[in-house]
Design a protein around this nucleic acid. Sequence first.
RNA 1: GGUGCCGUAGCCAAGCGGUAAGGCAACGGUCUGCAAAACCGUUAUGCACCAGUUCAAAUCUGGUCGGCACCU
Length: 312
Amino acid sequence: MADKVKILVICGPTASGKTSSSIRLAKQLNGEVVSADSMQIYAGLSVGTARPDTSEMDGVVHHLMGFLEPEQTFSVADYVELASNTIQQIAERGHVPILVGGTGLYISSLLDGVRFSPAKPLSQERMLLQKELDEKGIIPLYEELKSIDPQYAATLHPNNHVRVLRALELYRQTGKTMTEQRNESLPKEKPYNACIVCLCPKDRQILYERIEMRVDQMMEMGLLEEAKKVYLNRESYHTVAQAIGYKEFFPYFEGKMALSDCVQSLKQATRNYAKRQLTWFRRMPDVLWLDPQETVESIVLEYWKSKDFEKE
RNA sequence: GGUGCCGUAGCCAAGCGGUAAGGCAACGGUCUGCAAAACCGUUAUGCACCAGUUCAAAUCUGGUCGGCACCU
């Protein structure tokens, strides 16, 4: 068995201080940052996605940030492939790969080594299913899923149209059920020796205060202009138009809501999002939880050194 | 001082004699190709307070307190 690559993972909800900590750690470990953020991958839009600028990066190499045009689509499967390759290259260079981000699905999938179905979803198939849904409602579709894959259907609520449709799409296209796909997708062994740290204030209230402060900062940095650009291109900016930080301003651009109310709803949406992010991190195994008020860098460095995967 | 309206969960709010809708927030969770998305679960032995009428009161009556509006 070949030695697995040892990587450092810094995850955590939004506004928990991942970016600055990871940059300091990268300098001390001779590392390179690999972003695990579903929105920072897009070009432009740096304010709303809190992407660090060159001076903040302080010479540390960052990967998978701002490399995709907002018109393009992307998925977890693309992410796992790209990130795996990037990590491999960093390791070959003799540097430490540092995975940093808040997109739980991306991080989990990468660390578990999920092998997604080789068949790419076809847009016609999806449109057909959407049409069926519009015409007949969810019940017949959910029933269909129940008959082909009762096990997976049992875990889904019929209201979750997105997943019901996706499971049917997978089956119609490949003849494989979601249960089969899931069973085949996990390798016997995880692909990395991951040293996982989750940054999060112990007091939820403090997290929420940090979020509000950060939104105010973004406003000063020109978030509104960025949002305007997204608004004007909302038809073609498929994924970005649903990012938190832009869609909240759409009612303002349409003259339906005061700017200050939009800022409030942006703060609210971000708080809700942070809470959802935590459900991902809480269920990942072997996570070192740290409050950003602690001396994060020194604790992480010690933890990193203490993790001797060879002897396991 | 007088008259009228109002007081239901952290917030908004329905109910107007038959055993507390709903929304938001909060908290917990799901997640295998758009995931900053989508979805699920939990949350008032109690309706300002006291007394009364009634088999039964958040709902009716009287009083007390608090708020709002108008009048003097």
